[in-house]
């Protein structure tokens, strides 16, 4: 993985900074404190990652667990995934789910952050209560939504007055899981964007007000540009997390009906743990890694830029 290669490359510099004015013994003693974590990173992140990359090139099935034999098959797993009739739809679902979630979460989060950025009674209490959905296990909130969206006795259809198959229809399942995921993500977006708004000096708005700028001009000329570093962080982190979403989809639809709400994450789970084709599941996982790494770099760049500006 390129990220880890470059991580190692930074070692000599960090090393040199630590050496200055200290004995060899002190350096080793200091290293002893982080050594367990270094070992931990190797065993629990690097090893699984390498294992998954390797498994993507192996015919790894249930039999492999008993025999310990998993022959290398080159790119066969990737070819099989590519030719899987569900793959194209899954990629499209992933894009729609991710883009839809990010856009609406961000817009709603920003609107709420701006709303709470003003002073009014009970602001602090109400704002922290908004975080409650974010602290609950996703399986629990997903289950609550499944009950709300239930076709026959769910409260949504009871209120609408006719039975809409929110989770049971191939046309609506993806929309439904996206809406629930948006609900999950709004508090996170609000908290981070609220923090960003607090960093914008109030004098800027006062000066703009004196110059006769209206609310829309203040929003587009001051708020949005000054919020840009925070925006990039929220959107890239949101993207990385949305790609990982598993619990919400599993509880609501298990990726169904007929793969209509399947994303790359649930598809990988389905291949590995339902069809027991671990090699192909790993191949899909590796595709996800590539996407995540690309955006991880966007995130790292963005945070470095933001720190540089501070």
């Amino acid at each position: 993985m390129p990220a880890l290669v470059s991580a190692r490359r930074t070692t000599p510099g960090a090393h040199a900074a630590g050496v200055r004015g200290r004995t060899l013994g002190a350096r080793w003693a200091a290293f002893a404190f982080i050594a367990p974590t270094c070992l931990y990173v190797l065993v629990f992140y690097v090893y699984p990652l390498a294992g998954n990359l390797r498994m993507g090139f192996q015919d790894y099935t249930v039999k492999s667990f008993y025999t310990g034999v998993a022959p290398f098959v080159g790119w066969d797993n990737y070819r099989a995934v590519w030719q899987d009739p569900a793959f194209g739809g899954t990629v499209l679902n992933t894009v729609l789910f991710t883009a839809g979630s990010l856009a609406v979460q961000f817009a709603a989060g920003l609107a709420l952050a701006m709303f709470f950025h003003r002073r009014f009674a009970l602001n602090g209490v109400l704002r922290s209560l908004l975080l409650v959905p974010w602290l609950l296990p996703l399986v629990v909130s997903g289950t609550a939504w499944r009950w709300i969206l239930e076709t026959d006795s769910g409260v949504l259809n009871q209120t609408l007055g006719h039975p809409v198959p929110w989770l049971a229809s191939t046309d609506l399942a993806l929309l439904s899981v996206t809406l629930v995921n948006i609900w999950v993500g709004i508090p996170f977006n609000m908290v981070i964007l609220y923090g960003g708004l607090q960093g914008i000096p109030a004098q800027l708005y006062e000066a703009a007000g004196l110059d006769g700028a209206n609310a829309w001009q203040r929003f587009t000329r001051i708020t949005l540009p000054l919020l840009r570093p925070v925006t990039v962080v929220v959107l890239t982190l949101g993207l990385i997390y949305t790609l990982k979403v598993f619990d919400v989809i599993m509880v609501l639809t298990q990726g169904g009906p007929a793969d209509s709400s399947q994303t790359l994450t649930t598809f990988s789970y389905d291949l590995s743990f339902q069809q027991l084709a671990f090699g192909r599941g790993a191949a899909v996982g590796n595709i996800l890694i590539v996407v995540a790494v690309v955006f991880a770099f966007v995130y790292l760049r963005a945070t470095r830029d933001a720190e540089g500006r501070r």
Partner: peptide, 20 residues
């Protein structure tokens, strides 16, 4: 500690590995 920066970077990247 020597290697600290590399460790912090590795931990940051580790959080981005997809759970599946």
């Amino acid at each position: 500690a020597p290697g600290g920066r590399a460790l912090q970077f590795a931990l940051l990247v580790a959080q981005m590995i997809p759970g599946i």
